[in-house]
C-alpha cells in the first residue's frame, strides 16, 4: 500500500490519495487535503458535509451517495457542487479521511 507523508505523518493511502485508515485523520490534515484539491479554505458548510460523510462511513461502513448526501447532510446538491466542484461525494470522502466511495457491485 502506498504511503504519503503529510504534516509530518506517514499515511496509508490508495493510488488516488484516499486515506485507507480513517483513524490516521485529523482536522488539520483535512484542511491540508482540501488545499491540495483546490479548496483553499474549509467553511462551516464544507465541514457539515465532511463530518456527515465521515460519520456515515464510521457508523455504517459505507459512504453515502451524492443523492443521500443531498438529502441528509443539510446541504442540497446544487450547493454541494459549489462547495466541492466536480465530485462532491468523492472529494468530501477524501477530505474526511475515508476510503474512496465505491458503487457496490
Amino acid at each position: 500500500m502506498p504511503t504519503l507523508t503529510m504534516l509530518d505523518t506517514a499515511l496509508d493511502v490508495d493510488a488516488e490519495g484516499f486515506l485507507q485508515n480513517p483513524e490516521q485523520w485529523n482536522e488539520s490534515l483535512a484542511a491540508e487535503i482540501a488545499r491540495e484539491n483546490g479548496i483553499p479554505e474549509l467553511t462551516e458548510r464544507h465541514w457539515m458535509v465532511v463530518r456527515y460523510m465521515r460519520d456515515r462511513y464510521l457508523t455504517t461502513g459505507a459512504a453515502p451517495s451524492i443523492r443521500s448526501l443531498g438529502k441528509e447532510s443539510g446541504v442540497d446538491i446544487k450547493e454541494l457542487y459549489k462547495l466541492f466542484p466536480k465530485g462532491p461525494a468523492k472529494l468530501a470522502a477524501k477530505i474526511g479521511g475515508i476510503p474512496k466511495p465505491k458503487g457496490c457491485i
Partner: peptide, 8 residues
Amino acid sequence: VDMPIKCP
C-alpha cells in the same frame, strides 16, 4: 442513475 442496483 445511482448505485446500488440489481444485477449491476
